[in-house]
């Protein structure tokens, strides 16, 4: 794997984890009695940007390297279900995240604190999806070895 692809994989993971952390921050911020709108706005913006960055960089790695090199190894190995179930689910559920993140961002920036409950629920779902996708990614990586 080239240095560019190694960097793409690392940044895909780092930005994905960063996005999860920022939406955890949004979730925690929404549960506080005295809500700090500036903190919520910055966290939701950074969370959205992190997911968009992870989407683009991870997509580059997936299309250029994973499909042609990693996928055949997994499908020909002892754990083909790691690709057939986990990777297929992960790559498609990941497509939800930028849109869910965009709505949390818009609701916080434009809603002015009027939609805290549904936005909190949506942030929680983003965090759950993010953690599930992280574990799926770890399992897929483990299946290559």
């Amino acid at each position: 794997m080239s240095l560019l692809l190694q960097n793409a994989l690392v940044w895909h993971i780092l930005l994905g984890l960063g996005g999860i952390c920022f939406f955890v921050a949004v979730l925690v911020g929404l549960t506080r009695t005295n809500k700090n709108q500036k903190f919520l706005k910055i966290s939701s913006l950074l969370g959205l940007l992190s997911f968009v960055g992870s989407w683009i960089i991870g997509g580059y790695y997936y299309v250029v390297y994973y499909g042609s090199v990693v996928k055949p190894i997994i499908k020909g190995g002892a754990y083909p279900w790691a690709h057939n179930i986990l990777m297929e689910s992960k790559e498609h559920i990941f497509l939800f995240l930028p849109f869910l993140g965009a709505i949390v961002f818009l609701a916080i920036w434009l809603g002015e604190g009027r939609f805290n409950k549904p936005v909190g629920a949506l942030s929680l779902l983003i965090v759950i999806f993010g953690i599930a996708i992280t574990f799926m990614g770890m399992a897929v990586s483990g299946a290559v070895r």
């Binding site: 057939n84 559920i93 609701a107 009027r114 939609f115 549904p118 949506l122 779902l125 999806f129």
Partner: peptide, 26 residues
Amino acid sequence: DYWISFWIWMLAIAALIGSLAITGFF
């Protein structure tokens, strides 16, 4: 506001059911 809240809840429900549908399908 009622309808905006309603659609945000619908988005969460659609994403939850959609993720289960995709995983279940694979």
